[in-house]
Design a protein around this nucleic acid. Sequence first.
DNA 1: TCTGGGGTCCTAGGACCC
DNA 2: TCTGGGGTCCTAGGACCC
Length: 451
Amino acid sequence: MRAHASVLHLDLDAFFAAVEQRDKPSLRGKPVVVGGVGGRGVVSTASYEARAFGVRSAMSTREARARCPHAAYLSGRFEAYRATSAQVMAVLRACSPLVEPLSLDEAFVDLAQSDLPDLELATVTARAEELRARVREVTGGLTASVGLASSKFLAKIASDLRKPDGLVVVEPGTELDLLRPLHVSVIPGVGPATVQRLRQAGVHTVAELERISQDELVRVVGKALGQGLYHLARAEDDRPVVPDRETKSVSVEGTYEHDLTDRGQMSAIVTRQAGEVAKRLRSNGLSGRTVTLKVRLYDFTTLSRSSTLPAPTDEPATIARLARTLLEDLDTSGGVRLLGVGVSGLADWIQEDLFASLADDDADEAPEAETPTQPEPDQAGATWTGTTWSPGQDVIHTEHGRGWVWGAGKGVVTVRFETAETPPGPVRSFRADDPELSRWRPPEPEQPDEQ
DNA sequence: TCTGGGGTCCTAGGACCC
DNA sequence: TCTGGGGTCCTAGGACCC
């Protein structure tokens, strides 16, 4: 804990939904839900208008539709979110070199490493307001909630207290006054399972947490969490703001609309996912030794199987072969709802050809037995002319200009003419066999991951 | 037809080594 | 002569975060 409130936590409000409302003016002031739009989708972000109807993150989209049928349900445009996030992080880095992003919409900033003349309350508060204003400018109107405190822990809690578009400054010395009345679930790392365990030990608030001994706490929630909570309950937190945290794993997974039962199809999916993982490893200059297969069965039982190679790889064929081998040992007879492939044990270098002969032998023994490709079950949206068109995606018409997919399915595609710059235009529906459809296309092929 | 996707960190047991 | 420890690596599962 520092003597000054020099740790800042910034959190963009309802980020994904806010980007959609910015880029689709007809959705401003209206309920917007971004997430999986298929039958097994969940809500990623709900706009505040949708939250008024009880729609929450992680809720199934099915339930969200029941609570708020008139909301716009969009599948998400991650390139747009990434680009906007990068603008925000640039604003923060212009203030201090010590910026630690936690996700696309959240970051810590160490103001002790900024250009500020001092760290008095008035000075840091003014800087926080400047940053909020700058974020609004560069993002085209997105709001951020900010917490300012003497530690990461308190700054993060503070940014949550006055959402949306709020600023909370915790004056050094008052940390425990703020903390003690709060429920333990406000502590990052305390989720439903830990809340339940603490409740059984008679602990609900931070004040009650502060009264139980460290030994007791460790008995109740385990060593690492127990020791952590013991200190956080006393507002003791010296964790530094750390920029450039290294990637530890890369993975791709998918949940399918209908449970998979065909082993050949599962094998083909795993092969494709291995290829995507390899592509992302390569584009980031990474390779890894441990390949993990993840399988979620029809009854939501989740299994993982992993295998570690003697040296790191970024080869799609190697990752795919290993993942398929791991799949072979699992009983999937009841049906599979999710399949995923991941690589961990990452190195930022690639094995020299020290063992090239070994690898070659291996490849000769097991030439790529290509599983026949079958179409994968749709996860969302409708497929026409080989592309899946999902609600919210940008499209361009050869003559009439830009718009976005309002809805797609049952042989009909609905498009709305509109961009952030052009006012809402007409909504048009096309049957999938309408020749007019050939004049629509997605804007750009998807960019491969940079850095 | 409840329950995403991409991550991080922790725990616990067994193998293996000294 | 019954029964050492500690350390590291690997695997599987689970809690949690956004």
